[in-house]
Design a protein around this nucleic acid. Sequence first.
DNA 1: GCCGTTTTCGGCCCGACTGTTTTCAGTCG
Length: 593
Amino acid sequence: MAETLPNSAIADAFEELGDLYELDGAIVHRVLAYRAAARTVREAPVSIAELARAGRATELAGIGDTLQEKILTLLDTGTIPAMEKLRAKVPPGLIAITRLPGLGPKRARLLHAELGVDSLDALREAALAGRLRTVKGLGAKFEASVLDALERGVGERPAPRLLLPRALELGRALADGLSERGGAGTDVRIAGSARRMADSVKDIDLIAVTRKPVTLAKSLAALGEIESVASAGRAGAKGRSHSGVSIDLRIAKPSQLGNLLQHFTGSGKHNAALREAAVRGGLHVSEYGVYDDAGGTTTTCASEQEVYALLGLAYIEPELREDRGELAAASLLSRPTHRTHSAHSALPELIALPDIRGDLHCHTVASDGRNTIEEMALAARERGYEYVAITDHSASHGFGDDVSPEQLRRQIERVREVDASIDGIMVLAGSEVNILPDGSLDYEDDLLAELDWVIASVHTAFTMGEEAMTERMIAAVEHPLVDAIGHPTGRLIERREPYAVDMPALTCAAARTGTMLEINANPDRRDLNDIHARAAAQAGASIVIDSDAHGVERFDVMRWGVATARRAWLTAEDVANTRSWERFAKLRKQTRQ
DNA sequence: GCCGTTTTCGGCCCGACTGTTTTCAGTCG
């Protein structure tokens, strides 16, 4: 039937199959296998449909012959027989019930079997009538907590998440406040997804060492950011911030700091994979230490480095701990050199902020920015950059911020003047040109040819279908005067979904034509995201990280773009604007060199 | 359902918490 399907559709099917199998009482490992496969498919840099047609989907971790067959059946018939069978057997409303806290598949099944509960509404009715407590193994407290959760709308509304800058700001404020109150010898670290520099986080994990644990735990309640504290003891404290985020403070003995930090930095999947691999070597990892079957002893670690070293692994940077191949890459292989054997891992040496030598996307008062060309140039120079491109919006941008062709010609002249008048930084004349719905650009080619640097971005008609959007963007990629594609998926984290575009196809076209793809560093965007940026680099496309600054202070958002690049396994070599302008030029497409 | 210094069957991470229990199942991160 369907020639092809996006990876997301295949992943959704596996996700649903996992949920249905779980509710049907399948063993947990089969359920986990479906969920792992769904994640692999969703994050894959290539078309899984095409891969399966070629019989090569089994090359991916977690996809075996059975699942490849199911993909092919889904492509050919539009469905999977097992899914149809399970849908008929398991009420679909039960999946929503398992989203409630304290309600997993077993209890959902139990409630369905005993009380006929098959939806959130039926659950509410049964709870209000006091029937939940009549089920063996459940009681009045359970019933009350279910009603409370339904009351609060849990399961309907997703939990609030903080964007990374706000999360780190909150985490830092809490850590500083605690350090102050904990007295000498207190050291508080941020762990969890904030430390891994995820796009957004739903709770803040803090790990502390201190001489006065009880005092430190109690002092959490005294911090201005904290709304309430549920528990506090010598092991730590749990609370909530005024912004609705859970705060988890754990207090470690200095000798176990490494174990606790490693455990609470996660991710959960990284830790699960780490422990599974360790078991094969007779070691058992927990937040308290590493237990060795052979000696029957537990070793504690003051640092994370020691934890990884005990397992025969190189140190893995927090940004890489997502179970995306980092464990295999961290295996220490003894590579013989001509003199000696040295331990060596395949982990990348990740890019860092000081590697960035220039910023190629920013705005001035000519469009919707807040500062002049000169102010922006000086601010870029203060960051130590060697070059900056002024890239205001183009002729059709709208919002009163559009730049007509005549205005752009004058802007180019002004950029030349500023460049001549300021030492120590090269100021480039550029533009962020709209990609119109038909794939054309909104300046004539002869004008674009006068620019040093052209970014093409989509700012209108976000909702067109995947095929049309992909054609539209590839037309811009293939334009000989386009240097880079700005914020390629258009997502706004926690606010707007990416538009439908075939990323493997776009990435492939970018690599083929030498068009660069941007990691827009604005923390609301971080677009390309980590998955796409990694795939793009692997496909041979050049990556450029830009601030998209609309004011002088916004050059500082570069760090969030670098964080995304690190999560994408990128080295300085993988990112074009870590080079001097002369060396950068060699990476540009032939028509732009 | 996947996968292999336990290779084609029999395993497949670790610990805390909660509520309901006389020893633990289910859920969660």
